[in-house]
Design a binder for these strands. Structure first.
Length: 267
DNA sequence: GTTGCGTCCTGGACGC
DNA sequence: TGCGTCCAGGACGCAA
């Protein structure tokens, strides 16, 4: 399930492969989530950028190709004639014959072509919080974002408003490292001060390891990420806490599976 | 504007 | 072996 580290890993691999190339033809699944892919036909790609979990591909004509990988989306550069499997949702044929292929089993991904910066059709992107890897992101910025709402702190992180790019895996990991209970509705300045660097750290380490592969995620070159071997909390309910040895707890919180340590992350 | 919940989607795990 | 049920979860729409 691609979060910021997985999307950034893909961005770094795609950028040198796509920059300066022209999209000569496009095929797309007819579903509303994907069909806009065809709008990029004939455009020249300027590079590959990212905001949160969104890949943003600037086009020379002043528009942007936006790709969100959803839960099971992946991108690869396929050789000419390679049609992929039945889960390929969009194919952009590039000048020279290679094909940029978007594969998405569960069809939760999304593709849009918009005028640069006009994200009205993508409300989450339009209201996206600060980039957690930018120099300006710290405890004060996070606290200002969190204290505007009364929702649980984990639910707020997943909303992409207080900070961009955090999904279920890295939210659990960051809250665990910061010693912040995921169900808290009011976070103190001190807790935000611990949580912000924890978010930055887990995301940075996720990038260093090439992302987290639990099932579907693959890099552009088809490799699995390596961060699943470094998770301290997510998905480890019932196992001993690496800090205190107490059994990690698990429950569904606002519809999302959540793991935490009752001892290290008290209410 | 905020909050909480349902919906989309499909492969895999699991129980019978 | 085959069938039915449940689960995973990011974004978004809707009702309160």
């Amino acid at each position: 399930m691609p979060e910021l580290p997985e999307v950034e890993t893909i961005r770094r691999q795609l950028d040198p492969l796509l920059g300066g190339r022209t999209i000569v033809s496009v095929e797309s699944h007819p579903a509303a989530n994907f069909v806009s892919a065809t709008d990029a036909q004939g455009a020249r790609i300027d590079g590959v950028g990212r905001r949160g979990k969104y890949l943003i591909v600037p086009l020379e004509d002043g528009r942007e190709l936006i790709i969100h990988l959803g839960m099971t989306g992946s991108l690869r550069i396929a050789p000419p004639g390679d049609r992929g499997d039945r889960y390929v949702r969009s194919r952009w044929e590039l000048e020279g014959g290679d094909v940029l292929e978007f594969r998405d089993v569960r069809r939760f991904g999304r593709i849009a072509v918009v005028d640069a910066g006009d994200y009205r059709s993508l409300p989450t992107l339009a209201r996206l919080g600060p980039e957690p890897l930018s120099p300006g992101f710290d405890g004060d910025v996070l606290w200002a974002g969190l204290k505007r709402s009364n929702r649980r702190v984990k639910t707020q992180l997943l909303s992409q408003r207080p900070v961009a790019g955090v999904g279920n895996i890295y939210a659990d990991e960051a809250l665990f490292r910061a010693g912040v209970n995921p169900a808290l509705r009011r976070v103190t300045r001190a807790q935000a001060g611990r949580l912000a660097p924890a978010i930055t750290a887990v995301l940075s380490e996720g990038i260093e390891h090439g992302g987290t592969t639990l099932r579907d995620y693959r890099t552009v070159s088809g490799e699995q990420g390596g961060h699943q071997f470094h998770l301290l909390c997510y998905g480890r309910a019932g196992e001993p806490c690496v800090n205190c040895g107490e059994e990690l707890s698990g429950r569904v919180l606002d519809g999302r599976s959540t793991t935490w340590c009752r001892s290290c992350q008290p209410r």
